[in-house]
Protein backbone atom coordinates (compact mmCIF):
# COMPACT_ATOMS: atom_id res chain seq x y z
CA UNK A 1 0.00 0.00 0.00
CA UNK A 2 1.47 3.38 -0.98
CA UNK A 3 2.03 5.89 1.84
CA UNK A 4 -0.76 8.40 2.39
CA UNK A 5 -0.07 11.90 1.06
CA UNK A 6 0.33 14.65 3.63
CA UNK A 7 -2.27 16.78 1.89
CA UNK A 8 -5.34 15.39 0.16
CA UNK A 9 -5.23 15.94 -3.62
CA UNK A 10 -8.09 18.02 -5.01
CA UNK A 11 -8.80 15.18 -7.42
CA UNK A 12 -9.86 12.91 -4.55
CA UNK A 13 -12.59 15.28 -3.52
CA UNK A 14 -13.79 15.65 -7.10
CA UNK A 15 -13.75 11.89 -7.60
CA UNK A 16 -15.80 11.42 -4.45
CA UNK A 17 -18.24 13.95 -5.84
CA UNK A 18 -18.38 12.02 -9.11
CA UNK A 19 -19.08 8.79 -7.24
CA UNK A 20 -21.91 10.38 -5.28
CA UNK A 21 -23.35 11.95 -8.41
CA UNK A 22 -23.26 8.60 -10.21
CA UNK A 23 -25.01 6.98 -7.25
CA UNK A 24 -27.65 9.68 -7.44
CA UNK A 25 -28.17 9.01 -11.15
CA UNK A 26 -28.35 5.30 -10.44
CA UNK A 27 -31.01 5.77 -7.79
CA UNK A 28 -32.93 8.17 -9.99
CA UNK A 29 -33.09 5.62 -12.81
CA UNK A 30 -33.47 2.37 -10.89
CA UNK A 31 -35.85 3.20 -8.07
CA UNK A 32 -39.62 3.16 -8.49
CA UNK A 33 -40.69 5.02 -5.37
CA UNK A 34 -41.36 8.72 -5.97
CA UNK A 35 -39.84 9.75 -2.64
CA UNK A 36 -36.67 7.75 -3.21
CA UNK A 37 -36.34 9.23 -6.70
CA UNK A 38 -36.70 12.65 -5.15
CA UNK A 39 -34.01 11.83 -2.59
CA UNK A 40 -31.69 10.73 -5.41
CA UNK A 41 -32.02 14.23 -6.83
CA UNK A 42 -31.00 15.61 -3.45
CA UNK A 43 -27.97 13.32 -3.47
CA UNK A 44 -26.93 14.71 -6.88
CA UNK A 45 -27.34 18.26 -5.61
CA UNK A 46 -25.13 17.40 -2.64
CA UNK A 47 -22.46 15.98 -4.92
CA UNK A 48 -22.51 19.19 -6.95
CA UNK A 49 -22.20 21.21 -3.72
CA UNK A 50 -19.05 19.27 -2.86
CA UNK A 51 -17.47 20.25 -6.19
CA UNK A 52 -18.42 23.87 -5.61
CA UNK A 53 -16.72 23.89 -2.22
CA UNK A 54 -13.68 22.04 -3.52
CA UNK A 55 -13.19 24.48 -6.37
CA UNK A 56 -13.70 27.30 -3.91
CA UNK A 57 -10.79 25.90 -1.91
CA UNK A 58 -8.70 25.45 -5.06
CA UNK A 59 -9.22 29.05 -6.21
CA UNK A 60 -9.14 30.43 -2.62
CA UNK A 61 -12.35 32.34 -3.26
CA UNK A 62 -15.60 32.50 -1.32
CA UNK A 63 -17.94 32.35 -4.34
CA UNK A 64 -18.28 28.57 -4.39
CA UNK A 65 -19.64 28.66 -0.86
CA UNK A 66 -22.23 31.27 -1.87
CA UNK A 67 -23.29 29.10 -4.78
CA UNK A 68 -23.71 26.01 -2.69
CA UNK A 69 -25.63 28.09 -0.17
CA UNK A 70 -28.03 29.07 -2.95
CA UNK A 71 -28.27 25.44 -4.03
CA UNK A 72 -29.27 24.51 -0.49
CA UNK A 73 -31.93 27.19 -0.34
CA UNK A 74 -33.37 26.22 -3.71
CA UNK A 75 -33.30 22.57 -2.63
CA UNK A 76 -35.33 23.50 0.43
CA UNK A 77 -37.92 25.26 -1.72
CA UNK A 78 -37.93 22.33 -4.12
CA UNK A 79 -38.42 19.86 -1.28
CA UNK A 80 -41.39 21.81 0.07
CA UNK A 81 -43.18 21.95 -3.29
CA UNK A 82 -42.13 18.45 -4.33
CA UNK A 83 -43.35 16.84 -1.12
CA UNK A 84 -46.64 18.75 -1.40
CA UNK A 85 -47.04 17.34 -4.91
CA UNK A 86 -46.22 13.83 -3.65
CA UNK A 87 -48.84 14.20 -0.92
CA UNK A 88 -51.43 15.23 -3.51
CA UNK A 89 -50.52 12.35 -5.78
CA UNK A 90 -50.83 9.90 -2.93
CA UNK A 91 -54.17 11.39 -1.90
CA UNK A 92 -55.58 10.96 -5.41
CA UNK A 93 -54.09 7.57 -6.36
CA UNK A 94 -53.07 5.83 -3.12
CA UNK A 95 -49.73 4.85 -4.60
CA UNK A 96 -46.14 6.06 -4.64
CA UNK A 97 -44.98 3.84 -7.52
CA UNK A 98 -43.83 5.98 -10.39
CA UNK A 99 -44.91 3.43 -13.02
CA UNK A 100 -48.51 3.51 -11.84
CA UNK A 101 -48.80 7.26 -12.21
CA UNK A 102 -49.06 7.07 -16.00
CA UNK A 103 -52.54 8.18 -17.00
CA UNK A 104 -51.14 10.53 -19.67
CA UNK A 105 -49.39 7.61 -21.37
CA UNK A 106 -52.33 5.93 -23.09
Amino acid sequence: MPPLPTSVPIAWYLTLSAILFSLGVLGFILRRNIITVFMSIELMLNAVNLTFITFSYMLKRVDGHIFSFFVMVVAAAEAAVGLAIILTVFKNRQTLEIDEVSSLKN
Binding site: S7, P9, I10, A18, M58
Partner: peptide
Amino acid sequence: VQRMTPASDGV
Protein backbone atom coordinates in the same frame (compact mmCIF):
# COMPACT_ATOMS: atom_id res chain seq x y z
CA VAL B 1 -10.69 15.34 -12.99
CA GLN B 2 -7.31 13.66 -12.66
CA ARG B 3 -5.98 15.41 -15.75
CA MET B 4 -7.35 18.88 -15.15
CA THR B 5 -6.63 19.52 -11.48
CA PRO B 6 -3.17 20.58 -10.33
CA ALA B 7 -1.43 17.71 -8.60
CA SER B 8 0.85 19.93 -6.55
CA ASP B 9 -1.30 21.82 -4.04
CA GLY B 10 -3.61 19.52 -2.13
CA VAL B 11 -6.15 20.22 0.56
